[in-house]
């Protein structure tokens, strides 16, 4: 019995999502190998080899794996399938894209976004925007699993596993990469941020996000999130969306500003340790999950808060 964890990385380093998915992979009870597929990804493979408990790292270094194309990456994972009983990956956009393709090629049902490993074949996963938790048992001989990373602690370093090269699989040549627009930001990524400040429709413009939300986030060293309404209106980029159909986060502190608290938004943040809501409507549903609610006009309260934190030396 061996489990293959497929790593989220940027070729130079391993992403925090991998450390968290490793905790889930290890809970299956078998040895864990890690697959690092990328281009010039030796540094990421070396980082994976240092993760505690990893027995072996496979490095598939090839131009075909440079841009997250689902078809070649799925072909690679399937080419390794005979040696493994379970395939685990964090539920990032890369693996939400590729893992179901792997599952179908192996003729098994993927178990999506598990939040708990009950045993090697039984898992808990949220359905209906987290309003119900299903316990499912997989009857497939090989398991394909994606992990909701917000519910697992990160595994640290302390290992020294060997790194082996894995041969590239034949590229089906069905798709090609044309370009990307990736925002460069010094702020922490949403899914690993300890603190998140999110703005909703009440922000009214992208300029107001920059004027009110971002300075507060910078004072707190926080990541910035948004509701779907704010993203749809163009006030915030798509990769900031928190919710059932955006990113699921569970930081130490989540500050929701001008967000009403629709079920779909709550699904993405209600496991945060401490929730603060600032909303001018005292009946907004967000207050039903907030530890600290402030009924106020955000255009007054947010600058005040930013200033008060400044005085605290933040």
């Amino acid at each position: 019995m061996t489990t293959l964890l497929i790593a989220e990385h940027d070729n130079a380093s391993i992403k925090d999502a991998t450390n968290k998915a490793l905790t889930a992979a290890a809970a299956l009870g078998a040895d864990v190998h890690v697959l690092v597929a990328g281009e010039n990804a030796k540094a990421a493979a070396d980082a994976a080899a240092r993760l505690s408990g990893v027995k072996k790292v496979l490095l598939a270094d090839n131009a075909a794996y440079a841009h997250d194309l689902a078809e070649p990456l799925a072909a690679l994972i399937v080419s390794l399938a005979s040696s493994y009983d379970a395939f685990v990956a964090p539920a990032t956009s890369r693996f939400k894209n590729v893992m179901p393709r792997v599952a179908a090629l192996l003729d098994v049902m993927q178990v999506s976004e598990i939040i708990k490993v009950v045993s090697s074949d039984t898992f808990e996963r949220p359905i209906y925007a987290g309003n119900a938790i299903q316990t499912v048992k997989s009857k497939d001989a090989k398991k394909v699993i994606t992990v909701r990373t917000s519910t697992f602690a990160a595994t640290g370093e302390g290992g020294s596993a060997p790194v082996e090269n894995a041969a590239a699989a034949a590229d089906p040549g069905l798709s090609s990469f044309l370009g990307e627009e990736v925002a460069k930001s010094d702020r922490p990524e949403l899914t690993s941020a300890k603190i998140i400040v999110s703005g909703g429709r009440a922000m009214q413009s992208r300029e107001n996000f920059a004027k009110y939300i971002e300075p507060l986030a910078d004072k707190l060293g926080a990541g910035v999130g948004a509701s779907r309404a704010a993203v749809d209106a163009g006030y915030a980029p798509n990769d900031w969306q928190v919710g059932q159909t955006g990113k699921v986060v569970a930081p130490e502190l989540y500050v929701a500003i001008g967000i009403s608290g629709a079920i779909q938004h709550l699904a993405g943040m209600k496991d945060s340790k401490v929730i603060v809501a600032i909303n001018k409507d005292e009946d907004a549903p967000i207050f039903q999950v907030a530890d600290y609610g402030l009924v106020a006009d955000l255009y007054q309260a947010v600058p005040e808060l930013t200033e008060a934190l400044g005085k605290l030396g933040k």
């Binding site: 098994v108 359905i127 119900a132 299903q134 009857k139 497939d140 609610g293």
Partner: peptide, 18 residues
């Protein structure tokens, strides 16, 4: 391929203070 063993209510979260 998946057997649903049970479906449960998620752990609730209580409203805090204003």
């Amino acid at each position: 391929h998946l057997e649903v063993l049970k479906t449960a209510e998620p752990a609730g979260r209580k409203a805090g203070v204003k």
